[in-house]
Design a protein around this nucleic acid. Structure first.
Lengths: 230, 230
DNA sequence: GATCTTGGCTACTGATCATTAGCCAATGAC
DNA sequence: GTCATTGGCTAATGATCAGTAGCCAAGATC
């Protein structure tokens, strides 16, 4: 399965060496994050319930039970991924909105951050959406709370824009849902090596969001060029 | 669990009666669809892998193994749900687009049909999206094929609109993805007894889609009233 | 009224898994 | 060099399930 040598062969206790303590070049602190990484990839590809601890172990070159030297449980791995996703999303949103008071610009930046996260961290975002139901109770509640927090930020931003006359929407709730759902979709189809770069994507979705809230006239608004920020 | 009487009690073979052949009022042909219904509800609520055949049986008042008198397998139930969803979606799209040649109107109708399906059949749509990875191989390929077929219809419609000068989009692909993903999102939050009726929702999303493709001027286009079609 | 068919049921089978127990080798501290 | 710690490993445990086998009763058919 991995090319490691057999230590004692016939009747011996082990069919493969222990490779214990501090193996090859693995810097020890990386081990845990390699496991998280592998779990993320597998959860995204196969789903949480179809991924076994043995699968995750194999992905980092160890056996299933050995994982418990690094993580508390399979559920813990999922919860960590999902909480991390929501925290990061909220932090990015806070940072995005902080730089300006113009409600149009705030929406553009919030949407770009949303899209960037869903494109750059597509596996996290994908798992974060699909596996909510796989979380057990204290964590599921927590993630859902952060999630509605995140949605509220967009909704209130849109409500403010509408109150200021910058936006023109029938329902801020529907506008915010549609914008967020667009982004969520990105995580399911985006590929780094596809037609668009992350920046191009973010910029185009920024335009789309401004169109949705009625903040852009017909046609592309600014210069035809590329996005302004990385 | 259900209020049926015990037939033979202590040491007897059965703790509950067989209630065989043609039970109470169940019209026999309904049985199978009741099972599909229950499976759908449970798959949506708990996910495919967390739903057991015993759960589905309990939901229709029988034991897990008895289900095999009506369905071939658990996987079959899922495949039926997912294929049905895609077929219906494509049929609705075909019907929606057939009534007019105006590309704006076609897009509006296609989007309204998309939203209506996702609101009216939210469980199907929800499961249809979340459980694609749970399908096994001939069926998964089939559903994915239909899915990209469905996406292509929107993309080509938008491309045509752009070619005719009715729409103004940077990328027809991104426009179509964003419109479709909005709709998919509806299935995860819509409730019949919420703020909006299905018709209101469909109409508003129709507007949003036209805004996305740059077909509507700023502001709400038509009369402020309600949707035109049921 | 005998017999077939239908659709229940229980018991079982075989697999799969998360997790625990307990062993052990290499590393590093002393 | 001895000895503790770390992080592997195998084996077992205990549960959970999909699906099968085989039984049986009520209605339907003849």
């Amino acid at each position: 399965m991995n090319g490691v040598q057999v230590s004692r062969v016939p009747g011996g206790r082990y069919e493969r060496p222990h490779r214990p303590a501090r193996p090859e070049g693995a810097p020890a602190a990386d081990r845990r994050s390699a496991i998280r990484q592998a779990a993320l990839r597998l959860f995204a590809a196969q789903g949480y319930w179809s991924t076994t601890m043995a699968d995750i172990g194999a992905a980092v070159g160890i056996r299933g039970p050995s994982l418990y030297k690094h993580v508390a449980s399979k559920h813990d791995l999922l919860a960590e991924i999902m909480n991390g996703t929501m925290e990061r999303l909220i932090a990015d949103n806070t940072a995005a909105v902080a730089g300006t008071d113009d409600v149009c610009e705030q929406l553009r930046r919030a949407v770009e951050a949303h899209i960037r996260y869903h494109a750059r961290h597509r596996l996290e975002a994908f798992v974060g959406n699909r596996e909510i139901g796989s979380l057990e109770q204290p964590e599921q509640e927590q993630v859902l709370g952060r999630r509605s927090d995140y949605e509220r930020r967009f909704r209130e931003l849109i409500e403010r824009g509408a109150a200021e006359g910058a936006f023109d929407v029938r329902s801020a709730r529907i506008a915010s849902y549609s914008i967020l759902d667009m982004g969520i979709g990105v995580a399911s189809w985006f590929h780094e090596d596809g037609e668009f770069s992350v920046d191009q994507l973010a910029y185009q979705y920024g335009d789309i969001a401004l169109r949705i809230v009625g903040a852009l006239p017909r046609g592309v608004p600014r210069e035809e060029g590329e996005p302004r920020r990385a």
